[in-house]
Design a protein around this nucleic acid. Sequence first.
DNA 1: ACGAACGTTCCTCGTGACCGAACCGACCCG
DNA 2: CGGGTCGGTTCGGTCACGAGGAACGTTCGT
Lengths: 257, 257
Amino acid sequence: MTSARGTGPDTGIKSTDTLISILEVLQSRDGAGVTEIAEELDRSKSTVHSHLQSLRAHRCIRKDGTTYRLGLRFLSFGGHACNRTGLLEIVRPEVDGLVEETGETAQMVVEEHGRGIYVCQSRGAEAVRTDSHVGTEVGLHCTAVGKAILAHLPEDRVREIADRHGLPPRTDETVTDLDELFAALERVRERGYAIDDGERIPGIRCVAAPVRTDDGVIGALSVNGPTKRLEGEYFREKLPSLVGRAARVVEINATYA
Amino acid sequence: MTSARGTGPDTGIKSTDTLISILEVLQSRDGAGVTEIAEELDRSKSTVHSHLQSLRAHRCIRKDGTTYRLGLRFLSFGGHACNRTGLLEIVRPEVDGLVEETGETAQMVVEEHGRGIYVCQSRGAEAVRTDSHVGTEVGLHCTAVGKAILAHLPEDRVREIADRHGLPPRTDETVTDLDELFAALERVRERGYAIDDGERIPGIRCVAAPVRTDDGVIGALSVNGPTKRLEGEYFREKLPSLVGRAARVVEINATYA
DNA sequence: ACGAACGTTCCTCGTGACCGAACCGACCCG
DNA sequence: CGGGTCGGTTCGGTCACGAGGAACGTTCGT
């Protein structure tokens, strides 16, 4: 069984391990007190307290009364991370365009360390409210964006990712078998786009197209919405063509920038 | 002069100090190598290296060939930080609305630790390209959003912030005197909105309105654009009324959520 | 007014962060 | 091809410093 000290890897600088585990607790609870964190991580209150003090001195967390919360400084770090290539500038108009054309939710997801991260999202007026937003992490095997990305990664890379993160089921529809996943990826390559039919959230369908440059896949664009609105010819023909076109525009702008 | 060990405070957990200083270097350079970071921070290569290894194991940074870069995981932390109240959900439509009405750039800025951080931004087709994006940090004294926020903070809080961060000049127009700043804040309170006329970036004007709830100011909304398009009655009357109306909508939705 | 629960401070001990130096591999010269 | 340079990576000893327990202060609720 895994150690009582959270779930993170125990490697390199130990203080960093505890630091990150504290951040993870803050993230999972939307803020917490010293005792709460200490118990969760099975560490002394004083240890947690001094870490929190240090993080606060660096403006990484904020203290509202007696509860500590993640700070906005991480947005600053993260913003730099995904804006360094000017990617957002290129992506936003296309994501907004997809929302205008469909009225649903559209987003751009980028792969990093075998996980998908939303870097841009736009929601239509009638769009369903999901819990996802910029910064949300998703597994690659259970989302359309994920499969669109995986389909264009080298096979051993896919195995490595599946090995590292597993294929945890999110709903009854989630692909949990590696061979089955590879078959799905083959279909994605044939069609040029990926779909997710309730594999992450029941009742939610999603169409995604990969965004590829000379460096390989840099991410995927997608539109998602309720199954009842996304069906028939619209779901099978129109939506893939809209998403695909947007993805190609991003590709072109990304390669000449 | 300042110490050779970066600029951060030396308090609490020392490893955290070095960790953050490394992140700061990565941020300021858009990625860097081990040696480069070690020299910048005046530390041994091995120290920097083990920190980088550790950060990478936690998916906080990525390694492209031989250069290390900030990772998207920070977006995940930051996203949680600014989305916990559902604020973004409320703000985005208003920011987008302002862009539609003006064609310029609009944004929401939130104060934290005496600095302003962009949590939402939208750019019109004709909007000027500035270097700001979600996650960008700005000083409060030299921006319209900042002054809109400061104007509704307690006076001692303002002094504290000015004391901590100073009033560094960004352009010839920047307010650098504390009394002058207080006078400006008084005008902001009278008018209900704040302006920035080239105080941060020459040739760029900005109109901002505070967003206040029972908890105090939670941030400010603003529109900015080139001086030549933002002038006369439009700048003095129309724009403030548009921005103010959007801010009030956010206020209402934020208090009943 | 009392007790409980929590955040904060203090102090002591054992360890892990730091460094220097050696190692390795890539790249660039002649 | 071979030597040199520049970068990243590995290794082991040392001593500052982070961990932890206990005591203290404060803020609740009753």
